[in-house]
Amino acid sequence: MGILRAAWVPDDDVERDWQVAAERAVEWVEHEATEQRATAVLVLNVFGAEQTVPALRGFAQRHRVATPRSGRQRAGSGIGPVLAYVPDAKTLEFATGLARNSSLAAVEGANLFPLRGWAAQMNAVDLTRPDDEAVELDVRLTTAMDRLKFYGNNGYGPPFDRQQAAHILDDLRAAGLLDRDVLLSAMAARGISADGLKRLGQLIDAAGGR
Rank of each mutant, 00 (worst) to 15 (best):
W118C: 06
L184W: 03
D11S: 10
D126P: 02
V9F: 10
V43Q: 05
E32T: 03
A7E: 07
A89Y: 05
D205N: 09
L184S: 07
Q73E: 11
F160T: 14
V20A: 14
Q36F: 09
V41E: 01
L98C: 03
G176S: 02
T128P: 01
V41R: 10
W28Y: 08
G97H: 12
N153C: 04
R37E: 11
V41I: 13
R180H: 13
D126C: 11
E108S: 11
F94C: 00
I204E: 03
N111L: 14
E15F: 13
R180I: 02
V41K: 02
H63C: 07
L197V: 06
L177T: 08
A119H: 10
G80P: 05
S185G: 06
P81R: 03
A60G: 15
W8S: 02
L172R: 03
L183Q: 00
R140S: 04
S70C: 02
H167D: 04
N123P: 00
N111Q: 14
G152A: 13
A144G: 04
V20R: 12
A144R: 12
R37C: 10
G80T: 04
W118K: 10
G48R: 01
P159Q: 11
V139I: 07
L83P: 00
E23N: 14
A134Y: 08
R162Y: 02
A186S: 10
N154G: 13
A66R: 14
Q36N: 07
G117Q: 00
N154H: 15
H31D: 15
M122F: 09
A75M: 03
R140G: 12
A174H: 07
A6F: 06
A144I: 03
L183W: 03
F94W: 01
A40V: 02
N154D: 10
I168D: 02
A33I: 05
A25T: 05
V20C: 04
M122I: 07
G58R: 15
D161S: 13
